[in-house]
Write a protein that binds this DNA or RNA. Structure first.
Length: 795
DNA sequence: CACGCTCTGCCTGCG
DNA sequence: GCAGAGCGTG
């Protein structure tokens, strides 16, 4: 080693630091730390995704070039060449540094795991930008925990006796299954609620505990019954060739633990593993990450213990708090500079979160300047609160020339959205609601999906049971019980039983209808093999009689008809986007998507969602209604200290979503679940130093709905001038829709053929139609679908 | 077996 | 305030 070697290594680092001068020092450290376990504690808005993306790009291009010292003999000439490179133009540096790469890694050897599809998609897009397609950005495995595991299980699950065409049961399916098991085992749902059992089973699976491994105190009667349900639940899942969401992780862990060849395959493949939102991982996910990175041990986890808000579904903050104990050679990097919010907003967030005991401790700071004071508004009731938000949005849109997509209204629970939605509609503010009932959770969609699941996998007894009498086919509970008995005795699926219904004495009476149903499904199976997805969907909807059933129900079910049609358009879309649009791949994609994945930040409308859904997002202006004890923090968490800390972390997440303005509000009385509550101001507000707050009160002691200084006509014109046209954009799948007939907005006066004159209170886009709430002069307020109502404009 | 009535319970929710 | 489950009746 010559004297030049030290100088050489130093110059090399200086060059990399220069190349990454757009990052701060902490961020650079995380990017350059490539080998061994790494924990990045990334505060809200600290550029965590930037670090993840650039670190992967760095690994692919330069390997461990920054920290790997050169020990060979270095000549004076070589040192000087390196040192003079400091004068190179910045855009020539990356190519120059290629010569210094050490142990760079192929893209397919990098695995990046996130929680949501949205995060995975964003990650992929940014990788393509930074890494570039020519460097194989496409080949990086970037997916959610579930998509990664499903991929592994489809390919290797057979080693655990999981056939590759398994179906996935969502939370509702799994509750139905539990409920039917409890009936069979004669367990009273009033003593042991389904909800409780399902969450216990989920907890076991998150802890990787099988029913056999679960230990119960001898005399614990309840526990022993729960375990009996768990055992039977497992049996029926495997009989139906189905996995629930927890299984997807648990079985993958089991597979990696038991099969040496599968474990070797993945461990040798993944040289680098990154896990985002690590604070949200549960025990099973921790084991999975540990297993997948088990050979090279280059596991990087990124998270923020202060943003851990999913304890209730099994996330354990322990994973992050104990990371450096489990991996004793782990390095920890803290990102505390915030690039998102103003100082006032950050100070408020810091002041709230510092009341938590169980945390690593971090203090966010920013160079963004103080910014506006945080507004704290007190109002009469939830309607006044909603009106205030609507007025405030219109005012800021006008005075500060804000676009509607700069605003977000974040609430603790979905039930709060109703009052706000109504008023926004009246005020002509375009908005979208995320969350609540997902498109694929709607009954009619789940029914049609159940048909498709049975067509794909006739062993799926649960889905078969769901649709066998939907629409009505005169197959009642007595027949179903007989089918279940035969199925259990002969060890064959429900479908096999009904296919041979005439063979069984117990089914003699129902045999004709059962055979007809079995033939219908068999026909669908044939169609599924010869025709396109969309044509299969259309035939299922029509030939099953499902559409006729809805149409016969009249206008009340009009929106359901729209939804099943929307499902067909989704199939068409899916065909356009995928070369191999099989039924199996469609079902899989659908079972792994969520609403937030459809959030489109570019659409110009105010967005309403829960604080949970908003994690990872940011908005210039954020409203937080319902800052009241009993709402936020929620009533259930008020008695438990750990739950209270989770609520406080949720408050921290909520506050740190805001970039420029934060508006908190609370009300004197609130109508909720049909009851009036009188809540005190949220304890989290009292934790914010008062000098950060601009306290305003607007108490009128009277019932109060949206009042605008603008007339309905002026509001509408304003809305149209802003390019909104029709007032609201519907939830969920956001494809542009053709509307038939005249379209009305809140404030219009219309004539209905039988109800006469009325005023449109709200208009809501539903599929290709509109749902109007109309106050008729003589018939009261009614909700009508535009295409059925035959409305005419009055004037 | 289907329909309509009453009763209940309801936070947050990844995939 | 609303949806889904349970129950009684035709």
């Amino acid at each position: 080693m010559t004297a030049y070697t030290t100088r050489y290594n130093k110059a090399k680092r200086a060059l990399f630091e220069r190349m990454y001068s757009f990052l701060n020092e902490r961020q650079r450290e995380a990017v350059f730390t490539v080998d061994n376990p790494l924990l990045v504690l990334a505060g809200a808005g600290s550029g965590k995704t930037t670090v993840l993306v650039h670190r992967i790009a760095f690994i692919l291009r330069y390997g461990n070039a920054y920290y790997q010292n050169i020990n060979d003999d270095i000549t004076q000439e070589e040192v000087e060449k390196l040192e003079s490179a400091m004068d190179l133009p910045l855009d020539e540096l990356p190519a120059f540094l290629d010569g210094l790469a050490v142990g760079k890694c192929p893209p397919w050897a990098v695995l990046s795991i996130t929680f949501t599809n949205k995060a995975a998609k964003e990650m992929k897009e940014r990788l393509i930008k930074v890494v570039g397609e020519e460097r194989g950005a496409q080949d990086i495995w970037a997916g959610t925990f579930h998509s990664v595991c499903v991929r592994i299980l489809r390919r290797h699950g057979i080693e655990l006796n999981i056939p590759s065409n398994f179906t996935i049961y969502d939370a509702e399916d799994s509750k139905r299954l539990i409920s039917s098991i409890m009936k069979d085992l004669n367990i009273d749902e009033k003593i042991l609620p389904v909800k409780m059992i399902s969450s216990l089973i989920s907890k076991y699976k998150e802890q990787l505990v099988t029913p056999e491994e679960a230990v119960t105190p001898e005399k614990d009667f309840k526990m022993s019954r729960i375990l009996r349900v768990y055992k039977e639940y497992e049996r029926r899942l495997s009989e139906a060739n189905a996995l629930d969401f927890d299984d997807i992780i648990m079985k993958t862990v089991q597979l990696l633990k038991t099969s040496e060849s599968v474990r070797d395959y993945y461990q040798s493949r993944f040289k680098y593993v990154c896990v985002d939102e690590y604070q949200d991982t549960n025990h099973a996910q921790f084991e999975l990450a540990k297993l997948l990175s088990g050979k090279y041990r280059n596991l990087m986890v990124v998270g923020d213990d202060d943003q851990s808000i999913y304890k209730f579904r099994g996330a354990t903050i322990k994973n992050i708090l104990e990371f450096d104990t489990v991996f004793s050679d782990a390095k920890t990097v803290k990102l505390e500079q915030n690039y998102r919010s103003t100082e006032n907003i950050l100070n408020a967030a810091n002041a709230v979160i510092k009341n938590n005991v169980g945390r690593k401790g971090k203090n966010l700071w920013t160079k963004n300047g103080k910014g506006d004071a945080i507004v704290l508004k007190k109002l009469d009731d939830q309607n006044a609160e909603a009106s205030y938000i609507a007025n405030s949005i219109l005012e800021l849109a006008k005075n500060e020339n804000r676009k509607f997509n700069e605003f977000a209204v974040l609430y603790r629970m979905n039930a709060q959205s109703n009052a706000i939605e109504k008023v926004l509609a009246r005020a002509g503010v375009p908005y979208r609601v995320l969350g609540g009932t997902r498109f694929y959770d709607r009954k009619e969609i789940k029914d049609i999906m159940a048909y498709l699941c049975v067509i794909n996998n006739t062993n799926d007894n649960l889905r078969l049971q769901r649709i066998i009498n939907e629409p009505k086919r005169k197959i009642g509970s007595a027949t179903l019980e007989a089918i279940a008995d035969i199925s259990a005795n002969d060890g064959i699926s429900y479908f096999e039983v009904i296919s041979n219904a005439s063979k069984y004495v117990a089914l003699a009476k129902a045999a004709p209808v059962l055979t007809a149903f079995a033939n219908l499904i068999k026909q669908f199976v044939i169609i599924s093999k010869s025709e396109t997805l969309s044509s299969l969907f259309a035939k299922v909807i029509d030939m099953s009689g499902y559409r006729d059933m809805l149409v016969a129900a009249g206008p009340a079910e009009a929106d359901r008809v729209e939804n099943i049609d929307e499902l067909i358009s989704n199939a068409v879309e899916f065909e356009n986007q995928n070369d191999d649009a099989t039924l199996q791949s469609f079902l899989e994609e659908v079972s792994l998507i969520s609403d937030i994945d459809n959030y489109d930040a570019d659409a110009d409308s105010v967005v309403l969602m829960t604080i949970h859904s908003a994690k990872g997002l940011e908005f210039p202006i954020v409203y937080l209604p319902g800052m009241e004890n009993g709402i936020f923090p929620g009533v259930i968490s008020m008695s438990d200290n750990e739950d209270m800390e989770e609520e406080r972390r949720l408050a921290y997440v909520a506050i740190t979503r805001a970039k420029q303005k934060l508006i908190l509000s609370h009300v004197k009385e609130r109508l909720m679940f049909g009851k009036t509550q009188y809540n005190q101001i949220s304890r989290f507000i009292t934790e914010i130093p008062s000098d950060l707050l601009d306290v305003q009160e607007e108490i009128r002691h009277r019932n109060y709905m949206f009042e605008s200084k603008l007339t309905a006509k002026a509001r509408r014109e304003e809305a149209i001038s802003k390019g909104i046209g029709a007032p609201n954009v519907f939830v969920g799948k956001g494809s542009a829709k053709e509307k038939n007939g005249d379209v009305f907005v809140a404030g219009d006066t219309v004539i209905h053929p039988s109800f006469g004159r009325g005023d449109v209170l709200s208009a809501r886009s539903m599929g290709r139609d509109y749902l109007y709430e109309i106050a008729f002069d003589n018939f009261g307020t009614k909700k009508l679908m535009g295409s059925y109502a035959k409305l005419k404009k009055a004037e």
